[in-house]
């Protein structure tokens, strides 16, 4: 099997609290994996462990077969994993253009012309060609999140991690961000998406992981997981939100 990410016995403890209690799973190349679950279930922590923004307490994360080791291959592996945050985290002191080109210029060593060219293509792709010279605070939340996606894509990542990308958005802006994500999935991008958008999970997901209390309770295709959940906890969660 061609796994791009392998997670083995991942645990994470924050000051005595067990946020993750032993997670093992894999992500195949080209797959869209959607992680759902109640708040506090550990799904964001799980995602943040994948690129070591949270350092696992125990367990191994492999990226393309290579175990992640801080101070060794971590920086390079991070440059191959795009990350989109709930609260965007655009760099407020830089124009949109500079936000998108910073990674390629500093991490990939691209030259300015090359990076700018690519940034313009990506901004066109997320529908923001006219905002290249704007500052983040001049944009709406939905526009900022689309810039954040372009910023991550500028690194030509092999996988994109989305940490509740629409949770901080006003309802009318959720659609524009989901559209961009759907288009990305359609192009074959490998994606791991933590979200509360069940519609997105059903429509775009190849596989859905249901997490609760730090455990991976159930994983299946969206049709099976939403249509016929096996675990009582999954049933209970889905009955509350659907």
């Amino acid at each position: 099997m061609d796994y791009i990410i392998e997670v083995k016995d991942l645990t994470k403890e924050f000051g005595g609290v067990h946020a993750l209690k032993g997670i093992s799973t894999q992500v195949e190349t080209g797959e869209v994996v959607v992680v759902i679950g109640p708040s506090g279930s550990g799904k964001s922590t799980f995602l943040r462990c994948l690129n070591y923004l949270e350092v696992p307490t125990t367990g191994v994360i492999r990226f393309q077969g290579e175990p992640i080791i801080p101070n060794s291959n971590l920086q390079r592996i991070r440059s191959e994993m795009g990350m989109v945050f709930q609260r965007f985290h655009l760099f407020p002191h830089m124009k949109v253009m500079d936000n998108v080109t910073l990674g390629p210029l500093r991490s990939l060593g691209q030259n300015k012309a090359e990076a700018s060219q690519r940034a313009l293509e990506l901004l066109a792709k997320v529908g923001l060609s006219d905002k290249a010279q704007s500052y983040p605070d001049q944009l709406s939340g939905g526009q900022q999140q689309r810039v954040a996606i372009a910023r991550a894509l500028a690194m030509r990542p092999k996988v994109m991690l989305f940490d509740e990308p629409t949770s901080a958005l006003d309802p009318e802006m959720i659609g524009e961000v989901l559209e961009v994500m759907k288009a990305l999935a359609k192009e074959g991008m490998t994606m791991v998406v933590v979200t509360h958008e069940m519609g997105f999970a059903k429509e775009v997901g190849d596989r859905v992981l249901f997490m609760d209390e730090g455990l991976l309770v159930e994983e299946n295709t969206p049709a099976a997981l939403f249509g016929n959940p096996e675990n009582p906890r999954t049933q209970s969660f889905l009955s509350k939100i659907l």
Binding site: G82, R106, M155
Partner: peptide, 30 residues
């Protein structure tokens, strides 16, 4: 400076020094 700024920079593969130089210090100096 919000720790999300550092995380965003690191997720772009920036080194600790580049993260300071291009992301954290310019905002901190303001």
């Amino acid at each position: 400076i919000d720790k999300g700024q550092r995380e965003a920079a690191q997720s772009l593969g920036l080194s600790t020094w580049d993260t300071m130089r291009f992301v954290i210090l310019p905002q901190a100096f303001r």
